[in-house]
Simulated scan of single mutants.
Amino acid sequence: MTIQEIQNEIVDEFSMFDDWMQRYEYMIELGKSLPLIEDRYKTQANIIKGCQSKVWVHAELQDDKLVFTADSDAIITKGIIAILVRAFSNQSPQAIIDADTKFIDEIGLKEHLSPTRANGLVSMIKQLKLYAVAYQTQLN
């Protein structure tokens, strides 16, 4: 699936819920299904700067696709990174670089997060895209 198709799927899933408490519960469930980062990658170098809670992300190239694993010490934040990993993992670095993130606005995520979590969300997206840039440079 393309990034856009995955993002559309996520938007459809979130639209099934009537209120934000249900959406938060769903995000927590998504966090439980997150491909977890190995403990050896839970290092200072893999912590996303700008997040109030700790979020670790590891990226590696497999068959010219970027594969992300992640974890967080906070359940809502873990759900947020799970959504991003789902949207961007197993895609080419160039596709990740070119992808927009308007699906975040479509599900209403940013407006329902505290300002510190919203800043963390922006930092997570930025970090995933920086990984993509770094790996795309290696491919060229």
Score class of each variant (00 low, 15 high):
residue 51 C to S: 02
residue 75 I to L: 15
residue 28 I to M: 13
residue 79 G to Y: 08
residue 83 I to H: 06
residue 15 S to A: 14
residue 43 T to Y: 03
residue 22 Q to E: 15
residue 111 E to N: 14
residue 33 S to Y: 04
residue 34 L to Y: 09
residue 32 K to H: 14
residue 87 A to Q: 10
residue 136 Q to P: 00
residue 139 L to S: 04
residue 106 E to N: 14
residue 129 K to M: 01
residue 36 L to D: 06
residue 11 V to W: 10
residue 57 V to N: 08
residue 62 Q to A: 07
residue 45 A to P: 00
residue 131 Y to S: 09
residue 139 L to M: 13
residue 44 Q to C: 00
residue 38 E to S: 15
residue 16 M to W: 08
residue 49 K to Q: 12
residue 124 M to V: 07
residue 109 L to V: 15
residue 133 V to N: 02
residue 135 Y to M: 02
residue 139 L to P: 00
residue 20 W to I: 11
residue 104 I to T: 13
residue 123 S to P: 02
residue 131 Y to P: 02
residue 36 L to K: 15
residue 77 T to E: 05
residue 40 R to G: 00
residue 64 D to S: 15
residue 9 E to A: 09
residue 48 I to F: 11
residue 7 Q to L: 00
residue 87 A to F: 04
residue 102 K to D: 10
residue 77 T to Y: 01
residue 51 C to W: 03
residue 105 D to R: 13
residue 35 P to L: 07
residue 117 R to D: 01
residue 118 A to S: 11
residue 48 I to D: 07
residue 109 L to C: 12
residue 12 D to T: 15
residue 70 A to I: 04
residue 103 F to G: 02
residue 23 R to D: 01
residue 85 V to S: 07
residue 123 S to H: 13
residue 104 I to W: 08
residue 58 H to V: 07
residue 74 A to G: 11
residue 42 K to L: 04
residue 81 I to N: 05
residue 107 I to Q: 04
residue 78 K to H: 11
residue 99 A to G: 10
residue 69 T to C: 03
residue 94 Q to M: 04
residue 73 D to N: 14
residue 135 Y to S: 01
residue 23 R to V: 02
residue 14 F to I: 10
residue 29 E to V: 03
residue 29 E to L: 02
residue 84 L to Q: 12
residue 75 I to F: 12
residue 37 I to C: 04
residue 4 Q to F: 09
residue 102 K to Q: 12
residue 24 Y to K: 12
residue 69 T to Q: 13
residue 116 T to H: 13
residue 46 N to W: 04
residue 134 A to K: 11
residue 137 T to P: 00
residue 91 Q to M: 06
residue 114 S to K: 10
residue 133 V to K: 05
residue 60 E to N: 06
residue 111 E to F: 09
residue 140 N to L: 11
residue 95 A to V: 10
residue 50 G to C: 11
residue 140 N to F: 05
residue 15 S to Q: 15
residue 104 I to M: 09
residue 140 N to P: 00
residue 64 D to I: 11
residue 71 D to C: 04
residue 19 D to Y: 09
residue 138 Q to Y: 07
residue 126 K to C: 05
residue 128 L to N: 06
residue 36 L to N: 11
residue 27 M to S: 09
residue 53 S to M: 09
residue 123 S to M: 13
residue 102 K to M: 04
residue 78 K to P: 00
residue 55 V to M: 06
